[in-house]
Design a protein around this nucleic acid. Sequence first.
DNA 1: TGCGAATGGTGCGATAATCGCACATAGTGG
DNA 2: CCACTATGTGCGATTATCGCACCATTCGCA
Lengths: 253, 253
Amino acid sequence: MSDRDFAQTLAKGLEVLACFESGALCLTLPEITRRSGLDRAVVRRLCLTLVRCGYLEEGEGGLRLAPRVLTLAGGFLGGLQVGRVVQPVLRHAAEELDMEVALATRDRLHAVYVDRAAPASARVTLGFGIGSALPLLHTAVGRMLLARSGPEVLEQALAARPATRYTEATELDPARLRAAVEAAREQGFAFARDEFELGAAGVAVPLGGLGQVPFVLATTASVNAFDEPGRLERVLDVLRRSALAIGRIGAPR
Amino acid sequence: MSDRDFAQTLAKGLEVLACFESGALCLTLPEITRRSGLDRAVVRRLCLTLVRCGYLEEGEGGLRLAPRVLTLAGGFLGGLQVGRVVQPVLRHAAEELDMEVALATRDRLHAVYVDRAAPASARVTLGFGIGSALPLLHTAVGRMLLARSGPEVLEQALAARPATRYTEATELDPARLRAAVEAAREQGFAFARDEFELGAAGVAVPLGGLGQVPFVLATTASVNAFDEPGRLERVLDVLRRSALAIGRIGAPR
DNA sequence: TGCGAATGGTGCGATAATCGCACATAGTGG
DNA sequence: CCACTATGTGCGATTATCGCACCATTCGCA
């Protein structure tokens, strides 16, 4: 039935894999069954296949992702020249600003860190690294990504906006969220503070994208880092110069 | 035919995905067909499925991995508490040694970087980051991993050893490679220089693993960084203390 | 101890999804 | 102009997959 050019079994297997994206260390078979909504026997067979192919491994009390998925991510990062081109630029910008700097893109309805650098002085980390997923609506990265994505993405994001606030400052009003994204598009940068993590603020600027998918360059710091007048301008300046230095992602080669 | 508990379509789809691991930015359909050895029509349908599921995207002149694979990797890293626990330790060790420090594990016949930190002074990077795959036989990380893996892994690695040397110093003699791995096991650390990258040397120490899969902590620097007497001992000391600080990967939670 | 619920493993027949050949088109280069 | 490669797709035969059903085991709890 349905589409002749769609391999259902493969799609279901990927669905099973996707159950592990939410940072759960170990999932049991029944848990995967619940999350995926697939038949119990099917889930079992798919999991056995995934284990045999090296994408999952059996741990104590369930299944967990295997290092194999890192190799896959390595293919993505390697193709983008992240190691050689992006990383040095991010490091330099991080030192210059004394702030965390990250390159991010969009995966469906999340912002995803592609690479990240922190200054040597940073003694505390928010715990976000490569592959971390952040909300689109309530972070600077996310809003800049939305500003550069099609309108349908914004609609989907608004439709899927969280029922509960991340913090007391989380904006939930659709009209205001639309305005924030629109402002990001017109200003050429996005700013957000306290809405996702209390005490944290972020700035994001666009970066020449690869095909349809936009990339953004962003920095995160504690809120008071931006209090000083002129600080925002300096951050924007460094970020934009870094964006130019990186250029179009994946364009070379 | 064959196994009742093995979803062939899923396995083939993963095979297609794996074609992109080797850092190729864009692959055309015929290229994937060649690499995977599957039927042309099958490859096409699987690719269409992978695109629809968001794991591949169409770029100029072929298909390429989508950011989605990063989200998957993020699930793996998040489950291991890499962001919060590992990263700070690596950063601290990197600064203390003024060398690049990495946490690595094994994926089949490759060593894979799980996380990495470089000191602020580092102005040049080898281009390896999270997800980068290194050979098992000719790097310090790899040999330490082999020393902690089952004997069958060593045999497979030896059987699959490269036909051409990476550098003029690459050891290709099976007996000597076995001895190097055995030495790593007995000494409790591995050392390699020039064998993979000319001018680069590495040291690796074991780390409490997660289940069967071993982890190692390693540092990389230019060869002359280890010339100074007593330097190796100091590196080992810092690495081992860092390994203790990280503890058993994924054990908490 | 005994009961019920949850988990894990598996056989099997019907169904439908997959396979892979085959045909068709377009672009490229000699 | 032809050979070659890339790409798209229809279709019949095959067979892999589905998902129900049944059974074994473990665990919690009364």
